[in-house]
Each structure stands twice: as structure tokens, then as C-alpha cells.
Design a protein around this nucleic acid. Sequence first.
DNA 1: TAGATTCTGCCACTGAGTGGCACAAGCCTA
DNA 2: TAGGCTTGTGCCACTCAGTGGCAGAATCTA
Lengths: 233, 233
Amino acid sequence: MDTLASMTPENPVLPLRERKKLRTRQALIDTALELFGEHGFDRVTLDQLCESVEVSKRTFFRTFSSKEDVAAAPTQDLWTAFLEVLEDHPPQGRPLVSLYEEALVEAIGRMPSDTWAQRALASRRLAARTPSMDAHGLAFCNRVSREAAAVTERRFTLDSAEKGTAEEGIAALRVRLALDMLLSAFHQALAAWVAQPAGHTREDLTRRLRAACAELPGALAATAEPRGEEAVR
Amino acid sequence: MDTLASMTPENPVLPLRERKKLRTRQALIDTALELFGEHGFDRVTLDQLCESVEVSKRTFFRTFSSKEDVAAAPTQDLWTAFLEVLEDHPPQGRPLVSLYEEALVEAIGRMPSDTWAQRALASRRLAARTPSMDAHGLAFCNRVSREAAAVTERRFTLDSAEKGTAEEGIAALRVRLALDMLLSAFHQALAAWVAQPAGHTREDLTRRLRAACAELPGALAATAEPRGEEAVR
DNA sequence: TAGATTCTGCCACTGAGTGGCACAAGCCTA
DNA sequence: TAGGCTTGTGCCACTCAGTGGCAGAATCTA
């Protein structure tokens, strides 16, 4: 075994240098979320953050690509896990969207149990009131969508429901649409999860994700009537 | 009438001051797309751009909120028109997604005929190879989605396909999901449109949008089979 | 044409992000 | 365990996006 405290799930014994790197990385994330959460994202300078962690700004940028990046780490870890799961999943021939849904649920399950939910919550609360963080997160998700589409193409063949119609570009298009549906459902689920007053557990997030995905067919089929007070022109 | 040349569709005679503003705005957009297109987005400084247009940097930031903003203007104009259409549309009780689709088609039709397509093409080509522009565009779309949801809630009531199940939060959720489906379809259509070698007209974009929207049900229903070469573990 | 309003240019400043170089800490082989 | 080798770090100077303030010029109003 190791020295009790300093053990991350996936490194029984990792080269000391690597462990140090991971430790400063984690310290940066935690301190960033704390400082940003208290004073606001753009009222805390990188110099202040770096000073708190006793790290040079140069080192910061070797670990994270931007100021937004450090605060978005929890969500990005989740999506990285999602991609991993998608590679390794022994998947059934079920609807594509459900496949993605299960992969994401599995990825949520892989996050470090208690700490992750708290960090994710702090991160998303911050993103909700910081436009640049929001933009950064969306761009990241978009990249994930592209990569997941590539994985899908490599690991699966598409059987569309009505057979024979699945031509070349159509299949690729459907994959991207299906992925974006999952992303959309997840974002709505996440927003609702963040907004709730208490009980921010992974299980609860999973539950909300499932609920949002279940509404996808309803959303596609829903019809709208104009409100009555409107006069016909 | 007016002096022939200087007439924008929506201002028969607008106060001189306003016209000047619009003219510098347009000059900034055109020059930006030209310079960025030739040398790359981040190899052109704002100072260079401002000097080309003979405008101070201070003035630039009174017209646009960021460097990305000026280059994304064509797409943003489209979405602004989309929101306007959504307000004024005399809509049928058709599926919500179709309603949005028609509104967007109408919005595309409202763009200045020839010039817009060229500008939009240049803008998107640029966005495809400039991460920060991509992020900016996604964030903007997300804001549009929120606003469109608000408009929907104000102007329509939702009749979900299976009656009785449309409760409070569910309706709002479905609206957002439906909107994101449209956004996703549009993004895929736009990407394909930009990628094609020639013939970048509004009509062609509309056609691609319709095709992408038509695939939404197929994307939701599509099933995937794992590729054969994979051994069962 | 005078006076109020609004837009613009200039200037100085903050803060994010980058490149280069010297140094130190972890790593590997004998 | 001492040597060199590799790799991460700190410091410094620099570019560039974006902001605030103020003086002056252009537009609008009467």
C-alpha cells in the first residue's frame, strides 16, 4: 500500500514527479473554485490564485490552458471519462441515444464519490454567472461531441430504424444529432441539479439525466398552440 | 427615395448619426473578415484592424463587445432575425420543432440576399479554424436558445403529443430540448454548407437545414451495432 | 447660430497569456 | 551513491485584448 492519504484511485504507485504534478493541479482547482466562488471569477487575478497556491503563473499555464480551464475541470473530467467509457463499453444494439446515456451514467459513477459532486456544483454555479466560463464549457462539449462521433464511427455500425435509408453522410449526421441530444439533455439536467437547494449527489444528477433523456421523444413530438389573446391579422 | 447607394432595408431615412454608425460597423465587419481570412484570426491585432478602417480602438469596443464578436456578426444577425420572426410569426399548431425550423428558414430568407451568404461563409470558415470564435458562437447560440424559450413560453401553450403529461417543468424542459435540436441540426447543416466547394446560396443552406431537421427522428431512433472485429470479453 | 447631446480620439492602465533562459528536483545507470 | 540526463519550475520581459477618463468634435434641437 501507500502512505494512506496521498492515493488517487488510478495510481497505486505513480512516479513521484507525476504525483507532485497532480497535487498542484488539484490544489489549483480547489483554490480556484474557492476564490472564484467567494469573490467572483473575474475579480480574482491569476497572480492572486498563483500566490495562494505558491506556484508561478508560468507553471499554471503548463497545467491549464486558460483561466476558465481550471474552473471547468470537474466537468471536463466527466466528459473525458465519458469518452473512455465509450471506447470500452460492451454495448448492446440499443438505440444510439440510450447507448450514450448509459455511457454518461457510467462516467458519472466513475467520478470520485463525494468530492466530485461538490466541486462540480461549485464549478457550475460559477459558470452560470460567468459568460466566458459558459462559453469555454460549451466549446469543450462541442469538441467532445466531435470526438465521440469519431469513436462511434470507429466502433459501431449504424442500423437506422427504417432500414435501407442509412447512406453515407446520413449516418454521420445522425450520430452528431444523437450526441447533441444527449449533450442538451445533460445540460438541462445539470442546470436543474445546480438550481436545486440541497442534496447534490451523483445519484441525483443521474436521476435527472435519465429524466431529461426520457423527454427527448416528447420534445420532438410536442406541438404548440398560440396563446388565445392574440388577434388574427 | 434616398441617394441610391446608402440604403439599408430597414431604414428609409434614419438620423445621419445612426447611418454613420451603421456604416463604420459594416466597414469593420467587412475589413475584419478580409484581414482575418487572409492572415488568420489571431495574427491580426485589433490595432491593425482599427487602423485599416481608420477608427480608434475605443470606438471599436463601443460597436462590438470583443474581437470575436465582429467576425461572428453574420451568424448573430441571423439569430436575431430568428427571434424577431418567432415573435411575429402567425404559427400553426404544428410540431414545435417544425415551428422553429420554419422560423429559421424565414429568418434566412430575411438576410440581405447575396452579400450575406458570402459574409456568413467567410465567418464560418474562420470559426472552423479558430477555437475562440467557435466558443463565442456557441455561447451566443445558447443565449438565443434561452431567449427563444422565453418567447415560446410567452406566446404559446404546449400540447404534448400524449396528453395529460405536460406538467410544469416538463413543458419548459421540452421547449429547451426542442430548441437545442434545431440548433444542432442547423450547426450540422451549416458545417456541411461551409464544407461544400461552391454554390453557397441562402437557398442551399435552407435546403440543408431542412434535410438535417428531417433526420432528427431518425437520429433519435437509430440503433448501433458493435463492429465485428471486437472480441467479447 | 447657440447650446445641449452624443459620439469619437487619445492616453494610460490592468490583466491574460507567451517565450526564453537559468536553475533545481526527480530519474537512471554504473 | 555519485554522475549525468531529463523534466518541471521560477523569474523576467513582452504582446495584446479590453476598460476608464477626459477633452474635443460632430450631430441634433430650437
